[in-house]
Design a binder for these strands. Structure first.
Length: 329
RNA sequence: GGGGAGAUACCGAAGCGGUCAAACGGGGCAGACUGUAAAUCUGUUGGCUCAGCCUUCGUAGGUUCGAAUCCUGCUCUCCCCA
């Protein structure tokens, strides 16, 4: 993987660059749609490429490992072949599931022992085998196993958790360096900054992550319940420390506003479930605020078309206009 | 023509003497959603001058301190036999 910084904004920390992988080039700042189990929910792979112009998508180690399983993925020749997505793929390590499926897992020094949400079977995810799994999935960008701690975690918990994540990183990195890609194209490995909402921990973590010398770095453990202002503060602190010449990936963020703010703080990569999940649930962001398309109260707020027959910006987001589009199709 | 079953809120459907303005689904209305256990989840859903009162379980009467629940007439619906 190669990252070239093209230009940097003079009035903010925003920058534009290019990430080059064996599956193609990514223009940053970039939003990466989430395709947890190999497909981006509600979006056909053709639409993803031709309409949405996604340049990279996510997959999830935990979910792909459980279903369809590594045997099938390996037999297919990796996820790119399995889902016919020939552009870059980044896979999350399962670190988020340590957080979101916290009732179904046990954390030890060794790793995270999950009880499958599908059939209750037990599966140990270690920093090493998670790298191995991502080798088999064939992700262009492999994420380190981390613990994504809850946003309201206290200092002691967050510190202990961060230190565990650091130790896991060393193990994961070692394993990554001692293994080879399986399908002939190169893979890279991103470590993840933790430290919760505590400035000193964030600094400490960012320094540790920077010292590893990876080709790109991620910021995790944010947008997990803390106020947006706290998130911005943490990102600002971390970005002071993470190298300028490597892409910075803010995991799990976020709203359009969050994304713009964080771009101005120097973040290059984002992913979030929000557009696909909220799309499926009928929620849309408009200049008039959040709109739930299923709610009738929006119906009369906009007429389908302006008198001259064109749609204004607000109309584009109105329920009436969307209905108009469907009706005319 | 003979025999049987049933009519419950927007719809489906429980309830079969008091704790029933009436379970549960659906639908409606509103809210939530940030590295996806999510085409999901939560709240609400007779009216009002709202810690109370009023009207509602096909319809008209009756029994009872008290009826969606028991009795009688009527009106519809469905099933079986001829």
């Amino acid at each position: 993987m190669k990252f070239s910084l093209l230009t940097t904004d003079l009035q903010s920390k925003a920058r534009a660059g290019l990430i080059t992988t064996d599956h193609g080039t990514i223009e940053t700042p970039i939003f990466m749609p989430v395709g947890t189990v190999g497909s981006v929910k509600g979006v056909h792979i053709n639409e993803l490429e031709k309409d949405i112009h996604a340049q990279i998508i996510l997959g999830n180690t935990y979910h792909l490992y459980l279903r369809p399983g590594l045997q099938i993925l390996e037999k297919a020749g990796g996820l790119h072949k399995f889902n016919s997505w020939n552009k870059p793929i980044l896979t999350d390590s399962g670190g988020y599931q340590v957080f979101s499926l916290s009732d179904n897992r046990k954390l030890t020094e060794e790793g995270a022992l999950f009880r499958s949400h599908i059939d209750g079977s037990k599966h140990l995810f270690t920093p090493e085998n998670v790298v191995e799994t991502q080798r088999i999935i064939g992700a262009d960008i492999i994420m380190a196993l981390d613990e994504c701690a809850p946003g309201d975690a206290d200092y002691i918990y967050t510190k202990t958790s961060m230190e565990l994540t650091h130790r896991w990183l060393q193990r994961g990195m070692k394993h990554f360096k001692s293994t080879e890609p399986k399908y002939g194209y190169s893979q890279t490995f991103f470590p993840i900054v933790q430290g919760g909402a505590y400035t000193d921990l964030r600094k400490q973590s960012a320094e540790f992550i920077a010292s590893v010398g990876a080709e790109g770095n991620a910021i995790g453990g944010l947008s997990v319940g803390e106020p947006a202002e706290v998130m911005y503060e943490m990102v600002a602190v971390v970005n002071e420390i993470l190298p300028q010449d490597k892409p910075r990936y803010l995991m799990g963020v976020g709203t359009p506003e969050n994304i713009l703010e964080n771009i101005s703080l120097g973040v290059d990569m984002f992913d979030c479930v929000m557009p696909t999940r909220n799309g499926r649930n009928g929620m849309v962001f408009t200049s008039n605020g959040i709109m739930n398309m299923k709610n009738k109260k929006w119906e009369d707020d906009f007429s389908p078309l302006d008198p001259d027959g064109t749609a204004s910006v607000d109309h584009i987001y109105s329920k009436a206009y969307v209905r108009h589009l469907f009706a005319s199709k």
